[in-house]
Amino acid sequence: RERTTFTRAQLDVLEALFAKTRYPDIFMREEVALKINLPESRVQVWFKNRRAKCRQ
């Protein structure tokens, strides 16, 4: 699998959701994945990595 490159628009949507909740449930992830045209698994990993970035 190639490394996913997120567009600015995708990142804006993800960051906005992250500001609301750091742990979105499966339904929220599915919804945002459809909206920004990414698989739900990529959204899940993005959140995992974003939380890790926050902890540093």
Rank of each mutant, 00 (worst) to 15 (best):
Q56M: 15
M28S: 12
L34W: 07
T21A: 11
R51Q: 03
Q44V: 08
Q56P: 15
F27H: 11
P39E: 15
R3D: 12
F18E: 01
E30L: 09
V32L: 09
L38G: 04
R29F: 05
T21S: 07
F18V: 02
Q44L: 10
D25H: 04
V43C: 02
W46Y: 04
S41T: 10
A16Q: 09
Y23G: 02
L17W: 04
I26W: 10
E31P: 00
A16Y: 02
L17G: 01
E2T: 06
A52Y: 07
F18M: 04
L17I: 09
C54N: 09
R50C: 05
M28H: 07
F6P: 10
R50K: 11
P24Q: 03
L17S: 07
I26Y: 13
R51A: 07
K48H: 09
E30W: 05
V13H: 05
A52H: 13
I36L: 15
L11V: 10
K48S: 08
M28K: 09
S41W: 08
V43F: 03
A19F: 06
A16V: 11
Q56N: 09
E31M: 09
E40S: 08
E30F: 06
T5H: 11
E31R: 06
R55K: 14
L11E: 12
E15D: 01
V45E: 12
S41R: 11
E40Q: 08
L14N: 02
A33G: 12
F6L: 13
Y23N: 10
R42E: 15
E31H: 07
R8P: 15
T4F: 15
R42W: 12
R3K: 11
T5V: 11
E15W: 00
R22K: 14
R22Q: 14
T4L: 11
A52V: 07
R1I: 13
R22S: 13
K20C: 07
L38V: 13
K20E: 06
E15G: 05
E2N: 08
Q10I: 05
E31W: 05
R29V: 15
M28E: 07
R29A: 05
E30T: 14
R22V: 08
A33L: 02
W46C: 00
E15H: 03
R22F: 04
L17C: 12
F47D: 02
R29C: 12
C54I: 12
V13A: 12
T4N: 15
T5Q: 13
K48P: 00
D12R: 08
R8E: 15
E30M: 12
L17N: 04
T21L: 04
A52N: 10
D25E: 02
